[in-house]
Amino acid sequence: MSTYVLGLITNRLGSAALTLLIVSFAVFFATAMLPGDTATILLGQAATPEAVAGLRAAMHLDEPAFFRFARWLFGLLQGDFGTSYVNNVPVAELIGARFVNTMRLAGIVTLFAVPLSLTLGITAAMFRGSVYDRVVTILTIGVISVPEFMIATSAVLLFSVYLKWLPALSFATDVDSFWQVLKIYAMPVITLTFVVSAQMIRMTRAAVIDTIKTPYVEAAILKGASRRRAVLIHALPNAVGPIANAIALSLSYLVGGVIIVETIFNYPGIAKLMVDGVSTRDLPLIQSCAIIFCVGYLALITFADVVAILANPRVR
């Protein structure tokens, strides 16, 4: 079995390189299609044709975009993310600290959201059709139906403006005690937990219910296994694949999709960096962020696939 898993991982590593290449080309063509380039965007309302031409030459943007892209790609192979067009700072330096911030926030949210979702999803499936199940369903959907910015804004109004318990801004840098960490991360983590948990809860519930119906779980129940035992021992292993996939999809959101939380709490992560890159047509920055998001996503889904195989050996 483990050789199969190893084979799958090797295979995935190979195809990951291909996926990254496709993404990179797609991002390049997309960026090239956007109106304006870095020089015109930087000059904004001051973009007279000669000013644009001058700046373009000074920034070495006058050679064909594809050459620049090819050079960047070649640099990446040697581990160099390139240099930002906009401020001449190495992209690795721009990304560095902010990437750590993003991973830290994602990690904390995962620690809360995954156990919470699994518990709620599995118990809701066990007591399917009960009042508990319905309450969990309505609350779950109710919570994600509220737009993210509204949850975040309400939390700030309540905890920062009226109660004055927590700071409204979450600068990741002002951390000097555990208490401080707790205060800074409380609101972003609550908001994101709300956002990512719903999908995991709902999918877990559905996948578990689906496997409860399979003949051998029914047989186990008929043989007198307790309901809890039937679900945990017999049904759950079969549901692990879809659940792991749902978790991976939800968590992938935490890598590149937390722009609203980053904006409202002023948290310096890489989602905002990517948006900056797009709005200034800063190709090396966009490309590097896209590659990071893509790697994160591929890692998560590969992990989900491996878990699925380990849980259900018949899947080969």
Binding site: L18, T19, V23, V27, A30, M274, V278, I286, F293, C294
Partner: peptide, 17 residues
């Protein structure tokens, strides 16, 4: 792999394009 790649392109970028 194709759909993984599709999912990895930032939606803001594709939206703008």
């Amino acid at each position: 792999r194709f759909l993984d790649a599709l999912n990895s392109i930032p939606s803001k970028l594709s939206g703008l394009v």
